[in-house]
Design a binder for these strands. Structure first.
Lengths: 338, 338
DNA sequence: CGAATGCATGAAACCGGTTACATCTATTTG
DNA sequence: CAAATAGATGTAACCGGTTTCATGCATTCG
């Protein structure tokens, strides 16, 4: 059923039918009612491509996420989807699966499919990859720590400050041997986390042990393995700062498997504050990141560009908050520990 | 940059350019090389709508999921995405958010956007909702327990058998007071789980206490609340069978909060075997469901219909497996417990 | 009462591709 | 050597809409 058939049934021209759909006020009431009745009867919906072809707009946005099974990204993704849905856009979910080639392939797809804009979550693409998108004039917003800064608007957190605060907390309690596990992925966020960690030690005047800084995959498994290796030796760390809750879960598992207690023998602190961090035993201390909000802001920024042409580049930094739970000690316990 | 401009630059007709893109063998080598060079230089990609308009195909599928933050659905979704991506399709991720209206709205969007097919995960739509899709001749495959059976192909598990096996295990160990928490959502799967539970009791000749069957929301929070209510009274259940790991986590949390031990005081068993079930303390006994595989099979079924027109309706039932871990006792312990 | 204005509608161009068919040239065949 | 055939390319119709512009009609105004 196409617009011509509807027009024929109604005994009018296609132009009139099209007007009913797009500019109802420009059509006489009688005619409009008649046409609308037929449209409803036939359950006619205008062909989306044909419309897109005219409008040069698809009403869809691309959403690139590093991994679909990681709750951190999914919470951000939900923020994006919430806003997009509410504004009538549909979201192409692109699961890059931590694979740069797949991410590039999906980006090319987005361009081919003429999405109205793209939200990139924690992307690892290079400047050159973005240049393609720029040439095509497709608006892009970055959420979370990208690798290079290609001059797009960005929503993020201050990872350096957050990591510094968390590390400082551990030092303040009295821990001196604090290991840090950070994702291998080369993004600003990860680099900043390490900078913050170092900064905290520097300010406290405590010497850093380089062998305590480990770059690993951001997975439960790698957290487990790295922690196990570190903890099973004598004289291991007093505390482990895993810069994602995901890794922290693995760390906790490894520590427990070694027959050590958390936090009495080894304290653990995470990063992200995903729902589960409050569910494991003991409850995980972590850095609260406003994941959902980051997605929401990212999508809003994008739709601002798409709909209002508001192309000024903005850099939005949201607040993090240190959440102290059971898995690391409290300040009051200084002295009783070492 | 459109096909006409490319044609002009190459000094050929648009038909020839189009042929280079779609039927390269039908073009002389010289001409082809020249045109391909220009296409590459200009980074020309044919307009997707225009192509879709001709082919009446979009190369995209819709994926409806009940909730984007639930790892159960996301593992299935990943299975779907894996297959779709590999076959060159792109996936519209529709997050119904456990809201029937939103699900319907997304379904309408899918129809409007002329997706080539739809995978519905654990849908709660009614027969009448599907009739619309059927009229439009859009292939649909159901994954997991839908509400009604509208005559589409389906990939699922035998929930009745799985629930029965799990319940039987608890009874065999010696538990008599086994509570069951089941999602409120009205799907075949949930109904079947309860049937299986009853069946196990019936076969064992143990009387069922109706007050032990609770329909709750499939969330950690509701699992927590329901368990707390049940456990804080004297003479509560010996064991709780939560028919999702999600709810089981809440149950575990509540039991621990009441100062009771798992499994010594209250045993817990879940359903789904999501990654985290092996990470909580104690590790959760659960029913392993091949979530990823279900998604993969669902997508394959759909693409079979789309690409090969293979429209025979199939009902694929995958195997579950009871995973006994720490959170419930083993058979050997019969007798020592009560 | 004739001209000007406004409103509703239709004809046709257009969006950017694909392809059936026509045309032209070069090669093969009888 | 003329006719048949194959191969390369162009012309124009078409996919299903939207929109500009022209047209016809009724109403308003001088």
């Amino acid at each position: 059923m196409n617009i011509r058939e509807i027009a024929k049934k109604a005994g009018v021209s296609v132009a009139t039918v099209s007007r009913v759909l797009n500019h109802p006020d420009a059509v006489a009431k009688n005619t409009k009612d008649k046409i609308e009745k037929i449209i409803a009867e036939e359950e006619y919906t205008p062909n989306w491509f044909a419309r897109s072809l005219n409008f040069n707009r698809t009403g869809s946005i691309g959403l690139m996420i590093p991994h679909i099974l990681n709750p951190v990204y999914m919470e951000m993704a939900k923020g994006v989807e919430d806003v997009a849905y509410q504004k009538g856009y549909i979201t192409f979910m692109c699961n890059a699966e931590n694979d740069r080639e797949k991410e590039k392939a999906y980006l090319a797809q987005m361009i081919r499919r003429r999405v109205d804009g793209i939200v990139m979550i924690s992307s690892t693409l290079e400047k050159e990859d973005y240049d393609r998108v720029k040439e095509k004039n497709i608006p892009v917003v970055l959420v979370g720590g990208n690798k290079s800064n290609p001059g797009f608007s960005c929503v993020r957190i201050d990872c350096e400050a957050a990591a510094k605060e968390a590390t400082k907390h551990m030092i303040d309690i009295g821990y001196r041997k604090v290991a840090m596990f950070c994702s291998k992925t080369d993004t600003f966020d990860n680099r900043d986390k390490i900078v913050g960690y170092r900064e905290a030690f520097k300010e406290a005047g405590v010497k850093i042990r380089e062998e305590y800084i480990k770059r690993i995959d951001d997975t439960v498994e790698d957290g487990y393995l790295a922690a196990k290796k570190m903890v099973e030796k004598k004289g291991g760390p007093h505390a482990i700062f895993a810069t994602s809750d995901n890794m922290a879960f693995g760390v906790m598992d490894a520590v427990k498997d070694q027959g050590l207690r958390i936090p009495e023998d080894v304290a653990v602190i995470g990063f992200d504050n995903i729902k589960l961090s409050n569910l494991v035993e003991p409850k995980l201390s972590t850095v609260d990141v406003p994941l959902h909000k980051m997605g929401v802001y990212g999508a809003r920024l994008l739709l601002d560009i798409i709909e209002d042409g508001n192309s000024e580049t903005r850099d939005i930094i949201l607040q993090t908050k240190l959440k102290i739970r059971k898995s690391c000690g409290h300040k009051e316990r200084i002295g009783e520990m070492f």
